[in-house]
Design a protein around this nucleic acid. Structure first.
Length: 573
DNA sequence: GCCGTTTTCGGCCCGACTGTTTTCAGTCG
């Protein structure tokens, strides 16, 4: 099996870590990190491209040297330069650098002076008060490191977007309530709508001398005040989420929002464009010499480097700057473009609400259609429907549609299990009575990549197959994706006139942003669906749309932006 | 180590906060 992009990127990240500890040229270190970022963000499988003899130097941040190293990794699975370095420096030192407060210089000092090689070794050194004796360290640093070490090991996980929003909401409200505060904005990865966020970044603009920092560090959910200054403070909430607050004057709003939204790589790229134009871009504005020439709005910042506004979801330095420069930015899909939901359950299987209630709720959202997709018989834990019960539901939907009088169309559908041998869970005669069939894998996640891929491809061969639901099966932070060749599935879907679901459940968000880009590049269209198990769940649609935006999708790339007639035509195979 | 409508060599984003320092290095975002 070929090596994943993520694994290649990790090798370069580890190489960068150890080189940094070793005191190598910092720009060389950065080059490896940038290469790792490029590789990690690719939607195509790099190993396949290498094997096809493709020239990797076409990729940003990949030159002759790194291209050669990638080829070696693909061929042998190893990076010789990293192996050589690990002869001299323990590999786990790069783990130590992940601890907040420890960078390359301090890790090197701990290693050289105390012989610390592992996390466990650091713990012992702290307990024996050896760390405070190392030059550059002191008792206070030692104490803080000890505290962070315990907290860090108990949980080191990113927070899902929906939970981060819930944590942010009351804090935002508290800051808003301060008299004289102009704006409170969520920035960072939450604003970029990344599926998980590491910390929360909040930007405040206010008149001078307001008690903003007091309100922030005094918030009742704060566990530890990590740092506190006049313009920037960091706290750790009791929930384990770190929050950074940045306070700037009103005229810096746009520059600060841009700076604080990131991503870091995007900011660097924009600032570099500034340098080329003789401008200095920081969080206070855009400057030519001493003169501020822009910074009130993000648009101004972009305009100063001759770029159009770039949506936050695109700011990953994954080609958006080039696209902006060339006038090729996508017109990202918006929530208002969505005309219906194609995956929803009722209490006939494992949903909470009745058919009528689901239809009403969808109509209230302004949808033109809602597909009812209860589970099929094989999924017994979800009370899956057999042919008979499904036939009853089909009749019930017909009656309901008559009653609804065109306010919304309820589509007759099913979420059909793909069985282990690739056959579908219900006979064709009942499936033919449906408007569409959403198909999914709910068991045997352990199949080999080849068998899992063939299983789904075989299912797609059936003319009954319309949409592949939650294509990877992952649950963010809980369950990894099953092994499958998604690229082949996407190609197959495009060839056969099938579609891929972007499941909008906040813990699924399956497809990923990179998968969406891959689907678009291979000409496959996507259905953004909530997989709602209650009327409230229909509101998850916005998370799916956000993920699609991160995947550069436009309304035309998504089938449930179509009116119902056009949708029906698309579903004919 | 990468990169170039100025450049194939000489640059490489920018500032805040902390702790250990007597003026700044290290770390972080």
């Amino acid at each position: 099996m070929s090596i994943h992009n993520r694994e290649i990127a990790d090798l370069f990240d580890r190489l960068a870590d150890l080189l940094e500890i070793d005191g190598a040229n910092r720009f060389r270190v950065r080059a490896y990190r940038q290469a790792a970022q490029t590789i990690g963000g690719l939607s195509e499988t790099l190993a396949d491209r290498v094997q096809q003899g493709e020239d990797l130097t076409r990729l940003p941040n990949i030159g002759e040297g790194i291209a050669k190293k990638v080829a070696t990794i693909v061929e042998t699975g190893a990076l010789p330069e990293l192996d050589a370095l690990e002869e001299r420096l323990p590999a786990e030192l790069s783990e130590l650098m992940k601890l907040s407060g420890l960078g390359p210089k301090r890790v090197k000092a701990l290693h050289q002076d105390l012989g610390v090689e592992t996390i466990e070794g650091l713990r012992k050194a702290i307990e024996q008060h050896q760390v405070r004796e190392v030059p550059g360290f002191g008792a206070k640093t030692e104490h803080k490191l000890g505290e962070r070490l315990s907290a860090w090991q108990s949980e080191e996980r990113r927070t899902r977007l929906i939970e981060a929003e819930e944590v942010a909401r009351p804090l935002i409200a508290r800051l808003h309530a301060i008299d004289g505060v102009n704006a409170v904005e969520i920035a960072g990865s939450l604003r970029r709508r990344q599926e998980t966020v590491g910390d929360l970044d909040i930007l405040v603009t206010a008149e001078p001398d307001l008690p903003v920092m007091d309100a922030f560090t005094g918030y009742e959910e704060v566990g530890e005040v990590v740092s506190r200054g006049d313009t920037r403070s960091t706290v750790m909430l009791r929930s384990g989420i770190q929050v950074d607050l940045r306070l700037v004057p009103r005229e810096s709003y746009g520059a600060a929002l841009h700076y604080f939204t990131g991503s870091k790589a995007h900011n660097i790229a924009v600032r570099r464009m500034g340098v080329e134009r003789g401008l200095k871009i920081n969080e206070y504005g855009v400057f030519r010499g001493e003169d501020r020439v822009a910074g009130r709005s993000e648009e101004e910042v972009y305009r100063s480097v001759d770029l159009p506004y770039i949506e936050p979801e695109l700011r990953e330095d994954q080609g958006e700057i080039d696209a902006a420069r060339g006038g090729r930015l996508p017109r990202l899909i918006q929530i208002q473009d969505i005309r219906g939901d194609l995956h929803a359950h009722t209490d006939a299987s494992d949903g909470h609400d009745r058919l009528e209630a689901m239809a009403e709720a969808a109509a209230e959202r302004g949808y033109a259609y809602l597909a009812i997709t209860d589970h099929s018989r094989h999924l017994t834990v979800a009370n899956g429907l057999d042919a008979e019960r499904l036939a009853d539901q089909v009749d019930a939907i017909d009656r309901l549609n008559d009653k609804l009088d065109g306010r919304i169309q309820v589509l007759k559908a099913v979420e059909l299990d793909i069985l282990e041998d690739g056959s579908l869970d219900l006979p064709e005669d009942i499936l033919k009575r449906l408007d569409l069939r959403v198909c999914s894998v709910h068991d045997r996640f352990d199949l080999s990549r080849t068998r899992q891929t063939e299983r789904i491809l075989r299912a797609m061969d059936s003319p009954m197959f319309n949409i592949l639901a939650h294509p990877s099966g992952r649950l963010i932070g809980e369950r990894a994706a099953y092994q499958v060749d998604l690229e082949r599935l996407i190609e197959a879907a495009a060839e056969r006139g099938c579609f891929l679901e972007l499941n909008a459940q906040p813990k699924r968000l399956d497809l990923t942003d990179a998968d969406c880009r891959l689907a678009k590049s291979l000409g496959a269209k996507v259905a953004i669906s909530t997989d709602a198990h209650s009327t409230a769940n229909l509101g998850y649609m916005r998370f799916g749309v956000d993920q699609a935006r991160r995947g550069w999708l436009e309304a035309a790339d998504v089938i449930n932006t179509r009116p119902v007639d056009a949708l029906r035509r698309l579903l004919e195979r």
